[in-house]
């Protein structure tokens, strides 16, 4: 089975570094994008199975990026991730096609579970 390819999108470089290493260590193929636009560009070059998308970013925020991803790559699973917890944005994110919504800092195992769950794997 091909390794699951994940695109981490966050404007916090420190978070991207640590998270990508940890996920990579668990056998996932991880790429990183510091912004929504870059994430879209990278997806255009090479699609990913799952996008882990930060909610609050400068320029293109999480929901806007989510909309564009769902437009261009409907098959890509998106898990929203944020430091900002509101019921409203969670509901709208899921309504717009996100698979799930997690609050930072999240347990790595929880994130892995959600990634696999989104792909229908155990």
């Amino acid at each position: 089975m091909n390794p699951v390819s994940v695109l981490l999108v966050d404007d916090e470089q420190g978070f991207l570094d640590a998270m990508s290493k940890r996920l990579g260590k668990r056998g996932l193929k991880v790429r990183m994008a510091p912004s929504g636009r870059q994430a879209l560009a990278m997806l255009d070059q090479e699609p990913a199975d799952v996008v882990v998308l930060d909610q609050k970013m400068p320029d293109l925020d999480g929901l806007a990026t989510l909309t564009l991803i769902k437009e261009r790559h409907p098959a890509v699973r998106v898990i929203m991730l944020t430091g900002h917890a509101t019921v409203d944005s969670a509901i709208s994110g899921i309504a717009m096609g996100a698979f799930d919504y997690l609050v930072k800092p999240c347990d790595l195992d929880t994130l892995l579970d959600q990634i696999y769950a989104s792909l229908g794997r155990k």
């Binding site: 420190g14 640590a18 430091g83 800092p105």
Partner: peptide
Amino acid sequence: AAGVAHEINNPVAIMVEEAGWLLD
């Protein structure tokens, strides 16, 4: 409070992930 919560959660998340990375 909402702004502070968001700003704090990000660095805390990094700390937690880095600690996890060390454990890994």
